[in-house]
């Protein structure tokens, strides 16, 4: 029996109300990713990439269509269950890094592990391994403000991967980084994801990301 796909977005429709009438952002978008696959969702600004990612991540509920994570239908889940699913099976990387500024790099990575109930000794081992792998072994005690943009995004990647997710959803992960740091961050994200057989869906219009992707999906007129 075949393993279910890591993530499937089937006929996703999303409409926002506006003063000028409803805005149809997604008009039946179809997307999927298998375990360990890196998929780039390409499209111009305002094409609905972030909305699609939010729906795949169970943050937004589509007007119609279905999202499954490893065969589990996310769209029909109550809000609290969706949050549990995000914590256990999804990881997020944001354009603005979104690290908690009062916490150190190590503590930021520890947050989801702690919420998952992983024991402290095990948590620390996992964090050390990730920091080492991401070249941040000596920067675990630093706060985000004491790290460069590239380092912050690497900490965010560590946080996204720490809990062993099925899928990482990355929204414009290189948009706040220069070319060199952007490439470094993408290289590390894709390497780690492949090592762990984690799918990565990247929403970006940055063409420099294309070489890292196994597959590119274009989102045009709300469809892909």
């Amino acid at each position: 029996m075949n393993e279910p796909r890591a993530v499937i977005g089937d006929s996703i429709v999303m409409t926002y109300p506006s003063a000028a009438g409803p805005v149809h952002v997604l008009r039946g978008a179809n997307i999927h990713a298998d375990r360990g696959e890196i998929v780039l969702v390409d499209g111009p600004s305002g094409s609905g990439k972030t909305t699609l990612l939010s729906i795949l991540g169970g943050i937004l509920t589509p007007a119609s269509g279905r999202v499954t994570i490893e065969g589990t239908d996310v769209t029909r889940m109550p809000r609290r269950e969706r949050a549990c699913l995000r914590l256990a099976r999804l990881g997020f990387v944001f354009q603005g890094f979104n690290l908690l500024r009062a916490l150190t790099a190590r503590e930021n990575i520890e947050l989801p592990l702690q919420a998952l109930g992983i024991r402290r000794a095990e948590r620390l081992k996992m964090i050390d391994a990730l920091l080492e792998r991401l070249g941040l072994a000596d920067k675990g005690a630093r706060r985000p403000a004491q790290l460069s943009g590239g380092e912050q995004q690497r900490v965010a990647i560590a946080r996204a991967l720490a809990g062993g997710p099925v899928v990482v959803l990355a929204d414009e992960p290189t948009a706040s980084l220069d070319r060199e740091n952007g490439a470094e961050v993408m290289k590390l994200l894709c390497e780690l994801a492949r090592e762990r057989e984690t799918s990565v869906l990247i929403a970006s219009h940055d063409q420099r990301i294309a070489p890292f992707a196994d597959r590119i999906v274009s989102l045009v007129d709300g469809r892909c």
Binding site: A83, C84, L87, N98, L100, L111, P112, A115, R159
Partner: peptide, 16 residues
């Protein structure tokens, strides 16, 4: 607010 939003997006339980 953004930090709380991040925690919610990551799926950290509301009760925490």
């Amino acid at each position: 607010i953004r930090e709380y939003g991040t925690l919610k997006a990551l799926g950290i339980p509301d009760r925490l």
